[in-house]
Design a protein around this nucleic acid. Structure first.
Lengths: 122, 122
DNA sequence: TGCCTTTGATTACAGACGTAGTCATATAAG
DNA sequence: CTTATATGACTACGTCTGTAATCAAAGGCA
């Protein structure tokens, strides 16, 4: 059961991972600034995500409310590992190095990662 | 000039990033254990990569030698940032956390990342 | 010297993806 | 009650991907 979510679909999931359930019009509203898509396009993406089982629907009057059926972490974990494998042979350090390039890491990020590493070492 | 390399194509690039130039038969040999692809398939991927400009060719008798025209880092850097953006809104810590799950980080990885963070803080 | 093998070129084809349009219907507004 | 509108269902269509097969040229082997 490998759930394959495409790039554009991920943008939609992102909205619903932040806030759910939402109706399609609300998703459209949330995406309005970020992406220059027609409402139709977003509706299509929502439908495909439902087909794929990434979203659950719940009727709310004449419309549907959409809710993710996988958590962001549930999806991101395996995806991250596959990503690291393909690009860096699974080694984590180069990945972090790329993130760090050009001020990619905030103070907070650094602190959090350090805390994380501390815990791992114990 | 956005170079778009697909998943399967990346597996081919990986071989050539490790060792280049190589002829197609050699690439096929290197991939034999990893992927269960016919030689035809790999040839197609090589051709597509050449079309896309990700590989350079150099005639060597009746065959071609393939060499990457972008470095692994040159490709991985932007790709990593896009990946982090899409999945974690650009925040690095959750990404590292996922990598760490289930013993994903070796001692060496941890040490390297720590060194990296040290340098960033200065 | 004529055929098999290797290699590159060209072609194939289904399914996923990006990006919508059309249609029917339910509903809100007047 | 009638009409404009919002919403979901279905349809569209060109491109990209995964995964090859076929064809032709060029050299190796019998």
């Amino acid at each position: 059961m490998k759930l394959k979510i495409s790039q554009s679909e991920l943008d939609v999931m992102d909205v619903l991972w932040r806030e759910a359930p939402l109706g399609s019009a609300e998703v459209v509203a949330r995406l309005h600034d970020k992406k220059d898509w027609s409402a139709r396009t977003i509706k299509t993406l929502l439908s495909r995500l439902v087909e794929k089982g990434a979203l659950t629907t719940e009727p709310d009057g004449r419309r549907f409310l959409y809710t993710p059926s996988i958590s962001r972490d549930g999806y991101a974990g395996p995806a991250t590992r596959r990503f690291a494998d393909r690009l860096f042979g699974g080694r984590a350090a180069p990945l972090v190095a790329h993130l760090a390039e050009g001020d990619g890491l905030t103070e907070t990020d650094i602190a959090e990662i350090e805390a994380l590493l501390e815990k791992l070492k114990k």
